[in-house]
Nucleic acid binder design. Structure first.
Length: 841
DNA sequence: CGCGTTTGACCGGCGC
DNA sequence: GCGCCGGTCAAACGCG
């Protein structure tokens, strides 16, 4: 429903706004966004009159005075009724201009927008500096003045809230940016950033978010008096979220918010975890912020998303729309359009061939998650284009060689597309800094193509400015084997490359190098994610997605899937990896099989379905016989401490903070050492054990003393587990007065049918805040020494189990817990088994 | 400390 | 010529 302003005004285009803050149920009338554009056409023969901004204002003033009211001129002109009409505001040619003293002074073109928004300063793709704010006569709201942050740029804008309808913001643009558009582009916040935060806040065990009915929650106040509550729906999730903050609190969002956001959006925190992605160190040293290019549709709160304007003339500098119709206009005139996002427009199957004909300043184009199959020819004339995203266009199968004409491209995202071959013309994109590529189309093509080169030799080498490269390949694509080696060799020649995401079916390729060049396993990178072996997307994993996502957050990730052996190349890469994910390895018996000295840099470790693993850290094995990994003279392996030679006295696995274990069917112990290594696992903060059927105890007393930093312990589905801490005959530990696990804040014990005791009467967890139990029928009493914490605030478990607990009256006397504190009004037991089990799993 | 906002002073056009 | 008003300047402020 295009609204044509009659008479003197055109370009009043209502758009279906999709404010992030708006409820879906709101009417279209409420959500209309109206725009005005006032432009002088000179001797327009069309009969449509357009006005200069100043002229318009002069006229407005005239109206105000003639009507006897002193009103805010901008507010006056923008009076709009909810059905989309403009109030009567028509005048003949303005005669003030000839009278006024401004004749002859340069009058700049103005463009006025009126937008329904909760936020005054809407993002428009440019970065602005506020240089003034003034109260406006007869307006309740002040007017803010902004200028383009690019020095010398004459573009300005002013922003004020509509005095008549405070739901709307009036933005008036004046002057034209006279510089390269992307030089002052705002850094759009990355959507994944939010996800990082979310993931961080979630339960360490992602599957426990649901609160099964029938569980009780015991909360203890600061004064030690306990109270049980019926848990509301979602209460468990809240519990675990809170709990997890202690365990993962240092894992914060990596990207700092723009200072300009202050006041509008909460400013994001800095990374406290040096190994987390895009940490400040990484960011500062990059020539630009990688995140800038990652999601152009993601906006700050209050930004209005629009439907594609109807009509043939689009005046907005920034359009972000999800189109519901399969057709776009043939050739809209978009003289100011800098950024266009049609992300998620599933209905969009094709783009008219001349669609981009009149978008000469378009810099950023996001067509991701659409159903297009190819790009129209007019796109290849967009010489200003710097960013093009076709991510997740599942029907996009062929990239035209004409892409080579887009020589200003900085970002090309072809991840999750179906293309089968990268045209060699890509090599002409000498400014390309980010290339994400998914050569996954082979299988879905359904036919064997002729010998396909996937990536032509010499193509990658020419992209000398590449900073980030992702190449994802269908593992069943045998053509990849033919070029893999060449591609890897070319990657190693990219001097600026800092971030590499690569799938390699063969381990050997890591170490391959031709004379004089570097092999990938030596190649120093600030960030990498290698998936080696069976492709992650083609295997059904038992590891929850959220845990895998947490693994992916690290800046140096190595995932090794379905391996049969452990090569020296693999060991070397493990040596400078921070996050290691070993899945379905056929022969590994211990993490230390990857080189005990290579454990020093590991901070996150995820082990899943490795049937031969019997112990995680095995210092008992003789590693002196380990083959010495050859090092290349003069090469620096990029890691903080370097990989140093291991000596028996040196502590190992010092820095590991997160250890997640899933389905290790032969796991019998966490740590085995002939001597007592005081620092092994001393950095561990989070330990999760899921489905380890042979595990009977988790910690030996010796290991217990090392875990001074452990904050979160989750044990689930270990049918043989009798105690978390093994009983000992060692007199030095027996009757120890020491208190172990001093930092433990959360402990979850779930589905442990043989669990009889938590700590075997060791004094543990003085700072414990939260405990959760489920299906531990043999745990019939809790001793004071394993529940010694003064900070215990929440206990969750089955009501019947809790009520049946045997309490040693004398031990618990005067305590906030125990039989005396059992409230009577516990929630009635519901069908815990049915609901609870499925939810917990 | 840097960067962006705030805020009072100032300037110039315009109208009376 | 004076005062109002919109617009701009720049020092102070303040947040991270």
């Amino acid at each position: 429903m295009a609204l044509k302003a009659s008479g003197a005004y055109r370009h009043c285009t209502p758009c279906v706004a999709q404010s992030q803050f708006r409820n879906q149920g709101e009417s279209d009338a409420d959500s209309d966004l109206f725009r005005w554009s006032y432009r002088r056409t000179g001797s327009s023969s069309s009969g449509t009159q357009r006005m200069w901004g100043k002229e318009m204002e002069a006229r407005l003033k005239g109206i105000s005075s003639s009507s006897g009211e002193a009103t805010n001129p901008v507010n006056q002109v923008n009076t709009v009724n909810e059905t989309g009409g403009i109030s009567s505001f028509h005048e003949g040619p303005n005669n003030r201009k000839s009278k006024g003293g401004r004749v002859g002074k340069e009058v700049k073109e103005r463009c006025v927008f009126r937008t329904r928004s909760a936020i005054d300063h809407l993002e428009d793709g440019y970065k602005w500096w506020k240089y003034g704010q003034k109260a406006v006569l007869n307006s309740r709201f002040p007017r803010s003045y902004y200028r383009c942050s690019q020095s010398g740029c004459p573009a300005r804008k002013r922003v004020e809230r509509d005095g008549e309808d405070p739901l709307y913001v009036i933005t008036t643009y004046q002057g034209v940016h006279h510089h390269n558009f992307s030089e002052c582009l705002m850094l759009f916040p990355q959507e994944t950033t939010k996800e990082v935060v979310q993931a961080t806040m979630d339960s360490p065990s992602a599957d426990y978010n649901q609160q099964p009915e029938g569980l009780i929650q015991f909360e203890q106040d600061g004064d030690g008096k306990g109270e049980t509550k019926n848990v509301k729906a979602g209460g468990m999730a809240e519990f675990f979220q809170q709990s997890n903050q202690s365990g993962h609190k240092s894992v914060r969002t990596p990207i700092e918010g723009s200072r300009a956001n202050r006041g509008g959006q909460p400013v994001r925190g800095k990374t406290e975890e040096p190994g987390m992605p895009a940490d400040t160190e990484t960011k500062d040293k990059l020539p630009f912020s990688v995140e800038r290019y990652t999601n152009m549709s993601s906006r700050q709160g209050g930004e209005v998303l629009t439907e594609i304007p109807e009509g043939d003339e689009w005046i907005a500098p920034n359009i972000c729309a999800t189109v519901c119709k399969p057709v776009l206009p043939e050739s809209p005139s978009c003289p100011f359009l800098v950024a266009l996002s049609l992300e998620g427009s599933k209905a969009l199957m094709a783009i008219p061939s001349s669609f981009f004909e009149h978008m000469s300043v378009l810099t950023r184009l996001n067509l991701s998650h659409t159903s297009i199959r190819s790009l129209p020819v007019s796109l290849f004339k967009l010489f200003s284009l710097k960013e093009l995203s076709l991510r997740h266009c599942k029907l996009f199968m062929e990239l035209s060689p004409q892409v080579g004409q887009l020589y200003n491209l900085v970002l090309l995202d072809l991840d999750e597309t179906q293309i089968v071959e990268l045209p060699k013309e890509i090599g002409k994109l000498s400014n390309l800094e980010i290339l994400r590529l998914s050569l996954d189309g082979y299988v879905n093509c359904g036919k064997q193509l002729q010998q396909n080169l996937l990536i032509h030799p010499g193509t990658i080498k020419r992209l000398s400015q590449l900073i980030e490269l992702k190449i994802d390949v269908n593992p069943e694509n045998e053509d990849w084997n033919a070029v893999e080696e060449v591609v890897v060799e070319e990657i190693c020649s990219l001097e600026r490359l800092q971030h590499l995401v690569l799938y390699l079916p063969n381990v050997q390729i890591l170490g391959k190098r031709t004379t004089g060049s570097t092999s990938l396993s030596y190649y120093p990178l600030r960030r990498f994610k290698y998936t080696i072996g069976q492709h992650r997307q083609h295997i059904i994993s038992r590891v929850p997605e959220k845990v895998e996502a947490r693994f992916q957050e690290w800046d140096k990730c190595l995932k090794f899937v379905k391996g049969n052996d452990i090569s020296s190349e693999m060991k070397r890469v493990v040596g400078y990896t921070k996050a290691f994910y070993l899945e379905r390895h056929a022969t590994a018996r211990s993490l230390c099989d990857f080189g005990i000295k290579n454990m020093k840099n590991l901070k996150f470790c995820l082990l899943a379905e490795c049937n031969e693993i019997q112990t995680i850290i095995d210092e008992g094995k003789s590693y002196e016989e380990e083959e010495e990994i050859d090092t290349v003279e003069g090469e620096v392996i990029d890691c903080e401490s370097g990989v140093e030679a291991y000596s028996a006295q040196e502590p190992v696995v010092l820095n590991l903070q997160y250890l997640h274990i899933y389905y290790l069917k032969n796991l019998a112990s966490i740590w085995r050492s002939p001597t007592y290594d005081k620092q092994c696992l001393s950095g561990l903060k989070v330990l999760e054990l899921h489905v380890c059927p042979k595990l009977s105890v988790i910690f030996s007393p010796a290991l217990l003393t090392n875990l001074g930093k452990l904050e979160v312990l989750v044990v689930e589905d270990c049918p043989e587990l009798t105690s978390v801490v093994s009983p000992t005959s060692n007199s030095s530990f027996e009757f120890s007065l020491d208190c172990f696990l001093p930092s433990l804040k959360m402990m979850l014990l779930l589905f442990l049918p043989k669990l009889e005791s938590i700590s075997s009467d060791f004094h543990i967890a003085p700072k414990l805040e939260k405990m959760g139990f489920y299906d531990c029928p043999e745990l019939k009493s809790l001793s004071k020494r394993e529940m010694s914490s003064e900070n215990l605030k929440v206990i969750k478990g089955e009501r019947e189990w809790w009520e049946a607990l045997e309490w040693e009256e004398s031990e618990w006397k005067m305590s906030g817990l125990g039989p005396n504190r059992k409230p009577r009004n516990w929630m009635q037991n519901h069908d815990i088994g049915a609901v609870g089990c499925s939810d917990l799993r």
